[in-house]
């Protein structure tokens, strides 16, 4: 698969970069809106831009409109308003040209239980009119091998565990060389080892130049593999950008470990530390603008026994909570 796939991708890129054609992002939506029958606004004026070559994390609480967005991008749902362009072409109008170059895992795998894993992939491949039947079995075998299912290929999909089904779903997305992979919760149902393998696979694919659009509810997963991220809440896009910038947007917290928390809290407030909270021997607060060495010196001068003095870097989760004002798994 490797030799032809590399050639294929380069040729595909050459074809896409027609002179005068501005690449506005692998996925670009403008004012994308979906209102379901009954008036529920699932997605509200979404302006999303996924840069080429990025691993793009798509975050949001359950019910925030992530899946509806993905379904609109894949041409499964017609937008109520706005436009979506995938690989530079309008969706769903250009679905037949765009989708052969897109691999997708949407809301978990769906398989024919009475068919073997291999036969499931053969069927999905046959559904693609641009897939060469002469290389079909070889490509299916390569995809199974890539997700670690080669040994279970002949087993009926009904007998697969959730993790194996997830892998088979991923294999279906990898049947052809793709320019874009849309993966909705790809590590769902996998054990920690399986999660590591899939993350390694995503990094490997990204290194080959495939853009990966990854929705996940696992923030550390997004932090580990994604270069860019977008956050949705209640159908709206809250923010998007490089993961490093997003995390930097949320300020870290000063953490003082001490057996004298009450005294420490008083001194920290004097030193301009805002939002001071004491929890056991941990006193935390928003760091002031001044040099932290002076804050530490003030604590020691006041007789506070300082056991630990640290600045905890903001995580994406802090950024998320700051942006949405709620816990991550809260359905809205």
């Amino acid at each position: 698969m490797d030799g032809p796939s590399a050639t294929e991708r380069e040729a595909g890129d050459a074809e896409q970069h027609v002179p005068g054609h501005a690449e506005a992002g692998v996925i670009a939506t403008r004012g994308l809106t979906k209102r379901y029958r009954g008036g529920q606004l699932a997605v509200d004026g979404l302006d999303l831009t996924v840069p080429a070559g990025s691993v793009f994390g798509f975050l949001g609480p359950n019910g925030s409109g992530k899946t509806t967005t993905i379904r609109m991008l894949m041409g499964l749902i017609e937008p109520t308003a706005g436009t979506a362009r995938v690989l530079g072409r309008p969706m769903p109008r250009a679905a037949r040209a765009v989708l052969p170059e897109v691999g997708a895992l949407i809301e978990g795998p769906a398989l024919y239980g009475f068919l073997s894993g291999r036969d499931n992939l053969l069927r999905y491949d046959a559904a693609d009119p641009t897939a060469d039947p002469r290389t079909r079995s070889a490509r299916v075998a390569a995809a199974l091998d890539r997700v670690g299912l080669a040994a279970a290929a002949g087993k009926k999909a009904r007998a697969y565990s959730l993790g194996m089904k997830q892998r088979l779903g991923l294999a279906a997305a990898l049947l052809q060389p793709r320019r874009l992979l849309v993966l909705d919760e790809p590590t769902n149902g996998l054990d920690p080892q399986g999660m590591r393998e899939i993350r390694a696979l995503i990094r490997e694919l990204a290194a080959d130049g495939t853009t990966v659009f990854l929705s996940s509810h696992l923030l550390d997963e997004i932090e580990q593999v994604c270069t860019h991220a977008a956050v949705m809440a209640q159908g709206r896009l809250v923010t998007q950008g490089a993961v490093a910038d997003l995390a930097a947007g949320a300020r870290g917290r000063l953490v003082v470990t001490t057996p004298d928390p009450a005294e420490a809290a008083r001194v920290l407030k004097e030193q301009g530390v805002a939002d001071v909270t004491a929890d056991g021997d941990r006193v935390t607060g928003e760091p002031p603008a001044r040099d932290l060495a002076e804050v530490n010196a003030a604590l020691v001068t006041a007789g506070v026994r300082v056991r630990g003095f640290a600045l905890e870097r903001a995580s994406l989760e802090d950024a998320f909570v700051a942006l949405t004002g709620e816990g991550f798994d809260v359905a809205s």
Binding site: R71, M74, G75, L76, A95, R96, L99, P100, V102, A104, I106, E107, G108, A110, L111, Y112, Y124, D125, A127, D128, A172
Partner: peptide, 10 residues
């Protein structure tokens, strides 16, 4: 659920 995968195949 196989319908969505057939349609994105496409």
């Amino acid at each position: 659920g196989t319908l969505r995968y057939l349609l994105v195949a496409p």
